[in-house]
């Protein structure tokens, strides 16, 4: 006996799928297709015409040392900021989950950073991390020249990583906390009665049980760090100094919209899309094996 609801005719099924397909087509396949077309041509910005150039745009981008620098910067940014945001989010969630004094308060407050728009957040961090006016000015008083994001690329990269991670700590915190609270209390209590301490319980019980959440957040954080970093870079560093923070997504914007090189920017966005797809496939292929779904 077949108990599931099935549709006898193809047409009804397709009719149900049409609205969704239309949406995906309009907002994803069509623009993506357009980007592919643009990346294979040289577009005149004012729409005066275009020339078919095949893979020339990709060739010239991949032969450009600045572009490789941009890829490296993006990977460094993605790696460190994902690690930092997830680690801090995990620790905070684990502590909040222990029902320590004030945990209800923390539960609300720690979610806020994710609600702040990237440009507003970047303005705040620009002030906090300004070497002459903000909080770091105090540090510079003690060690002159210690902090100089205006000329030192490493300092500038650190600034945008801090700002981005701060925002995503809030996001990760929500999911980690939910995951921790989904673990049956009886398991933890039983372990406690057997004499295991907080750290032991964390590693042997909680951590293995939240691996699906960790995996989910890993994929999301890496993807977002490639895409959502734009506002922060634009306000805090504009890609400088000397291209040290010129992340791929920012380079697409500055080449395309400031430089009016629509074709080059389209080619770069195709490369970025492929990179994110490959990274995601990689994660599903190799990291998901270690995830225990219940």
């Amino acid at each position: 006996m077949e108990k599931r609801v099935t549709f006898s005719s193809w047409t009804i099924g397709i009719l149900f799928a049409v609205p969704q397909l239309l949406l995906i087509f309009t907002f994803f396949y069509w623009p993506a297709g357009q980007a592919v077309y643009w990346s294979l041509t040289l577009q005149q910005p004012w729409g005066g015409g275009n020339i078919w150039v095949g893979l020339d745009n990709f060739r010239s981008i991949l032969a450009n040392a600045d572009y490789w620098n941009s890829i490296t910067a993006s990977l460094v940014f993605a790696g460190i900021s994902t690690g930092l945001a997830m680690f801090v989010g995990l620790v905070l969630a684990a502590l909040t989950d222990r029902q320590l004094t004030g945990s209800r308060f923390y539960r609300v407050v720690l979610i806020w950073p994710y609600g702040i728009a990237a440009p507003a957040l970047a303005m705040a961090f620009r002030f906090i991390l300004a070497p002459e006016a903000g909080f770091m000015a105090v540090v510079n008083q003690v060690w002159p020249g210690f902090w100089d994001p205006g000329l030192d690329g490493t300092d500038a990269m650190a600034s945008i990583i801090i700002a981005f991670s701060w925002k995503y700590v809030g996001y990760n915190f929500i999911f980690f906390l939910a995951a921790f609270q989904a673990i049956p209390r009886s398991l933890i209590e039983a372990a406690a009665m057997d004499g295991s301490g907080v750290v032991r319980r964390f590693w042997d019980i909680q951590f293995p049980l939240i691996t699906p959440t960790i995996f989910f957040l890993l994929v999301i954080n890496i993807t977002e760090s490639f895409q959502d970093s734009f506002g922060i870079v634009d306000i805090m560093t504009s890609g400088g100094p000397a291209n040290a923070t010129n992340l791929m997504v920012y380079k697409i914007y500055s080449d395309g919209f400031k430089g009016l090189d629509y074709s080059g920017a389209a080619a770069q966005s195709i490369i970025l899309m492929v990179l994110i797809v490959v990274l995601t496939i990689f994660q599903f292929r190799f990291i998901e094996r270690r995830v225990h779904y219940r």
Binding site: D152, G153, A242, S254, G259
Partner: peptide
């Protein structure tokens, strides 16, 4: 043409020069 990008390149290289790179 695209002088905005050339100006951006100016900024990039001046920063590299002043940072002793």
């Amino acid at each position: 043409g695209n002088f905005t990008q050339i100006r951006a390149e100016f900024g990039t290289q001046m920063q590299a020069i002043f940072a002793n790179k």
